[in-house]
Amino acid sequence: MDNERSNNILSDLTGLAKFTGRVVHHLINPPFENREMLKQSYFIGYKTLPLIAVTAFILGLVLTLQSRPVLVDFGAETLLPGMISVSIVREIGPVVTALICAGKIGSGIGAELGSMKVTEQIDAMEVSGTNPMKFLVATRVVATTLMLPILVFFADAISFIGSFIAVNLHGDISARLFLTDAFTPLHFYDLIPATIKSFFFGFAIGVIGCYKGYTAGFGTEAVGRAANSAVVVASVAIFVIDMLVVQLQHSMEALQF
């Protein structure tokens, strides 16, 4: 049983690697489906904004409220905006946004393509002379890859608003002072790893969602399975990518790049 499970995981990983290769091939070779890519960017980016806004606002608020008592005990309350901004920009903003997108976008892509596969819509597209890898897959992968960093910036900004409100629940601090305190410990190079990993998160969510949908089996049950495993695998991938980028970042800092 364990051997069978290991074989399944291995064959799934091999399939995913081959699929990623095909996606990259279609991403770099014309013709490009720009119109469909813009349409997908609108759905993936704009339509996810409200969910990201609500979550990011609550995240900033709660993180500040939870962190405050410890800093007050050490008499370091003034460090609160800086600590929150570093946590959000470096780590929590990108990871939480990516996890939310894995849940909303990854499952959506998995279910949509899974349903199209089960009802032979992908085959119909192929026999009518349209390459579904280009039209359905490449466009969605580009859209998730480009939209995720934008959503992360947006989430970071909204979290700051939540944090500012939380700080003002226990005191009186102007927006200008809050922003000064928040941005002082932040450096430009804090943004670089966060942005780079956001691109990778977006790519992983798009590729995994498409792979799971595209390789869904038969019947309605397969659609549910595709959506579910798209979320699970993409979530794990996000943590693995995060770990690798953080390790890389630390190694480069140690080498004083």
Partner: peptide
């Protein structure tokens, strides 16, 4: 090609 389940694009 007329598919068994019609394969109309449902979106």
């Amino acid at each position: 090609f007329l598919f068994q389940g019609n394969a109309l694009y449902d979106s």
